[in-house]
Design a protein around this nucleic acid. Structure first.
Lengths: 171, 171
DNA sequence: TTCATATAGTTCTAAAATCGAACTGTCAAT
DNA sequence: ATTGACAGTTCGATTTTAGAACTATATGAA
């Protein structure tokens, strides 16, 4: 699959994955939320190759997740900060962290605790329904095609290009 | 970086990324939540190569995200279903979908709508604080080292192995 | 002046991952 | 006896990533 194609798919999950769904990008975003802003900062915090880091940052800027802002002239230097679109990834990050906290901790316990300044307490993130504010369970959610869904004809056409071709028999 | 090392890192985000943080795995999990259970089902829905699909499924089973269950004898056939650990990824999936719905839709609108059976309404997922039940904003959250955090000495040792080495001057 | 350091990249080759297609094996139905 | 469904495995070619060095600009020290 050409991964650029993901962004064209009629699926919000696929499109999101097309933008942030690889290991280095997710780790770069972690650093962003931890207030890292500069090339060298990302590089030394992550141990990513400079080549890939440059490429990933470029892509995140192109996608509007990060903004590249000059912080000095001569030599020109820029730093990378989260846009609102980038900040909106916070629930994604928290959901990933919380799953790790729940299922991947060793005997030592959580590496990081989160304090909510509003209430002053250590918390876990909980995902609720915007309408009734009850926690969401997969069993209680049904999906329906939305206005951006593909018609049957479109699905058929799309299948032709991605579906496994029939394999021929042995001679 | 050897990606197996991610699971050892003192960071719940890194550990989670080590398990589910690649494009195909995330798409496979989407299919799981859409009730796909069998090899051919995943393959034709995603267009993933059979080779990679087999590998990813094995890894998800090894990690306890999926369970491989026989559904017929002779020939032996199995299907892959989400464990509780896998079901717990629901907030991650919903967060990814919601970001896509917010920032990646085209003029046609959302591909999929979600109905909450509890209240009967179409909803968006909202992430709140478990303690005060207010929506979480990145600015209002502070992180503290938890019991599983690395000591300063451990951080230093870890840096030696991942940090960029000093580069020598040109001759 | 010359050297060293800081920062933000780019370039290059080798190694690893992925793709694409074919192949294996079991069983049921025709 | 052949075809099709299903769940993989194998293999060569292509694409990505890793790892290291190199470029460029400027500051401050020897």
């Amino acid at each position: 699959m050409k991964w650029d194609a993901l962004e064209e798919e009629p699926c919000s999950l696929a499109r999101t994955i097309g933008v942030i769904g690889d290991r280095w990008t997710l780790l770069i975003l972690r650093e962003c939320f931890l207030r890292t802003r500069r090339f060298e900062g990302f590089q030394s915090a992550l141990g990513i190759t400079r080549h890939l880091l440059a490429e990933r940052l470029k892509k995140l800027v192109r996608q509007g997740v990060l903004r590249r802002i000059p912080y000095q002239e001569s030599p020109k230097r820029h730093e990378y900060i989260l846009t609102q679109k980038g900040l909106d990834l916070y629930p994604v990050m928290m959901a990933l962290v919380h799953w790790g906290d729940t299922h991947m901790v060793d005997e030592r316990g959580r590496p990081l605790l989160h304090e909510h300044r509003n209430c002053g307490k250590m918390f876990d993130p909980v995902m609720i329904c915007s309408e009734c504010r009850e926690p969401l369970l997969p069993k209680e959610v049904h999906t329906h095609p939305g206005p951006g869904a593909r018609s049957a004809a479109e699905r058929l056409a799309a299948q032709k290009s991605t579906k496994a071709k029939p394999r021929r028999r042995a001679a």
